[in-house]
């Protein structure tokens, strides 16, 4: 049984790990971001490299094949998707609401003014608010895609580059790292590293598959419902779905808002909302249990704190990476504690 001293040590190491992670993220913000994304991609593509090895390719060749496929996808996406996306974003930003939409908004505003005046709604300008929100969303997206284009290009080059080496030499790197551990802690560290690797790989790949499936389904649903900018909203919904609670609602609101403003038909917005609720149910009960499983169950409060911290440190990208990073830290801590108990260190 672990004594009071070892429990104290454990608490201290947990605290140190959290402080060290936050310090590294703060000090090496930009670098950490690139490394984290490369690491996530390497984890996601590792089984693919293993499958290629099984078919007779060497690890190097398997990595080259994945690397080329990945770069091709990026180039194709930049050539075909990004101009369409930019066009949709700019149209979303500048496009004024249709005649019917303006009428329904004016009607809604009149009702609000009349019925809710005692609650302080007499100065409430719904039209302006919607316009501001659209401009804000559009501006954020344009900022993300256009500004800092040098940094974006550097990332687009550096990420596949680092991913290549992590994918190709990850096993050797792990072996070298474990080679530095003192004899007494060698088997323990090896055991821990492998278990963490397994759990993390499953978790991160699950998250990735879930985001892709949800994004594709959302895009399809929006296209079927004839919503404008379906590609942009679908991709946004897929990515946003990585952020629990807030993400799916943000995707749904954006889709419904665009549908209403574009056609002036409130029913269209309701249909979009219904489609998103149905998709979320399919996601929760079919896709997630199959793809993610229950291996890394994060407490809702922890998720909320992680998203806030991620958003504070790195903005939107930080919010997206917050949950996988929190999942990573949880796996590291839980596996450390479980494995530590099996060894006679005291």
């Amino acid at each position: 049984m672990p004594g009071r001293e070892s429990r104290g040590m454990r608490d201290l190491s947990v605290l140190l790990l959290i402080v060290a992670t936050i310090t590294v993220l703060l000090v090496f913000g930009g670098v950490a971001e690139v490394v984290i994304i490369s690491l996530l991609l390497a984890y996601i593509f590792d089984p693919l490299a293993t499958a290629l090895e099984r078919s007779g390719l060497s690890r190097t060749l398997a990595t080259v094949v994945i690397f080329l496929a990945f770069v091709t996808v990026i180039v194709l996406a930049s050539t075909f998707l990004i101009p369409v996306l930019l066009e949709q974003v700019q149209a979303l930003q500048s496009g004024s609401a249709s005649e019917q939409a303006t009428q329904s908004i004016v009607k809604l505003q009149a009702i609000l003014h009349e019925k809710l005046a005692p609650l302080g709604f007499e100065d409430f300008n719904l039209m302006q608010m919607i316009q501001d929100f659209k401009v804000y969303i559009g501006q954020k997206a344009v900022d993300f895609l256009l500004q800092d284009s040098v940094a974006l290009v550097v990332r687009l080059v550096m990420i596949p580059f680092i991913m290549f080496f992590l994918l190709k030499e990850g096993r050797e790197m792990k072996k070298e790292l474990i080679g530095l551990i003192p004899n007494r802690y060698f088997e323990f560290s090896l055991d821990l590293l492998y278990k963490m690797d397994l759990q993390l790989g499953n978790y991160l790949r699950g998250q990735f598959i879930d985001a892709v499936v949800f994004g594709a389904l959302a895009t399809l649903a929006l296209w079927v419902l004839g919503v404008k900018y379906f590609l942009f909203i679908g991709i946004f919904a897929g990515l946003a779905n990585l952020i629990p609670f807030v993400g799916p609602i943000a995707g749904m609101l954006l889709g419904a808002l665009v549908a209403v403003l574009d056609t002036g038909d409130v029913m269209r917005g309701i249909w979009v909302a219904v489609a998103f609720i149905a998709l979320k149910l399919v996601d929760d009960f079919v896709v997630q249990p199959l793809a993610v499983g229950k291996s890394v169950d994060l407490h809702p409060m922890l998720v909320a704190l992680a998203i806030l911290t991620g958003g504070h440190l790195f903005g939107i990208l930080g919010m997206l990476l917050a949950v996988p990073v929190a999942g990573f830290l949880k796996v590291v801590l839980m596996e450390s504690i479980v494995t530590y108990r099996k060894y006679r260190f005291t």
Partner: peptide, 23 residues
Amino acid sequence: ERILHRRDYEDGESIFRQDEPAL
């Protein structure tokens, strides 16, 4: 050979201990 781990132990040092998980 690529997946083997080379380790050095001094006289009297334990390589593994009874009752610890076998790896």
